[in-house]
Design a protein around this nucleic acid. Structure first.
Length: 105
DNA sequence: CTATTGACGACAT
DNA sequence: CATGTCGCCAATA
């Protein structure tokens, strides 16, 4: 069982798990919640290894400008899931009412 | 320990 | 508004 998670990963996954249905957050905000305001990249990497997906809604984490960002199963998958959760998209690339659906810690 | 990589962010052009 | 460049952080080889 070589699935060993670092402390950093655990923190990220834990916060991600708290994102309410129908809302989203950003990699940067997650990083800030961890005290690392500039570790957005590292956060994305952590979610990429998410061992408990989709139990941990990593699909609710998007980029700071309202774009989707990436997803382990493919960006398309992420888009569909978010739509199912009631989120709207602008031109199929940006989240509608970004500021409104954005969940802040 | 050093180098490379990657689901990012901010700014410049 | 679209693209490019630099900076940041953690994980991995």
């Amino acid at each position: 069982m070589s699935n060993k998670l670092t402390n950093f990963q655990l923190k990220v996954l834990k916060l991600t798990e708290k994102i309410p249905l129908g809302k989203i957050t950003t990699y940067g905000l997650l990083a800030q919640a961890l005290g690392l305001s500039q570790a957005a990249r590292a956060v994305g990497n952590a979610l990429n290894k998410n061992p408990w997906a989709p139990q941990v809604p990593c699909h609710r984490v998007v980029k700071s400008d309202g774009q989707l960002g990436g997803y382990g199963g493919g960006a398309k998958r992420k888009l569909m899931i978010l739509q199912q959760e009631g989120l709207g998209f602008d031109g199929s690339k940006k989240i509608k009412n970004f500021g409104t659906v954005l969940y802040k810690f």
